[in-house]
Amino acid sequence: MAESCYITFPTTYYAIRAESVLKTQPYSFKMIPVPRSISSSCGTAMRCHCEDLAAIREILLQNSLELEGFYRLEEIGLRVPEVEEIHFDQ
């Protein structure tokens, strides 16, 4: 089953800054409205391939970004998907 990973941010400022930082990096991603099944402070999230999540997180942290949460979601259209929150050590 197809799935995507999501990164959420404390504020819009960090969401847009993340987009600007990642633009020059070789990962595909998209800024999207936060899916309703995820709770987030800011309305915009970053969707990426789950295999890229750790690397993207690393780059964003190196650029002093404040990140809120990381999630894995099944892509099942309009139905509410299962959400798995991903925790990184440190």
């Binding site: 819009t12 400022y13 847009i16 800054r17 600007s20 800024m31 409205p33 936060v34 309305g43 915009t44």
Partner: peptide, 22 residues
Amino acid sequence: NPGRSGHTRTLEADRLVYRARE
């Protein structure tokens, strides 16, 4: 309206504010 909705125009508005800040 920057930060308020999820559609692409909002995102464009967010980007504009970000560019101004930068």
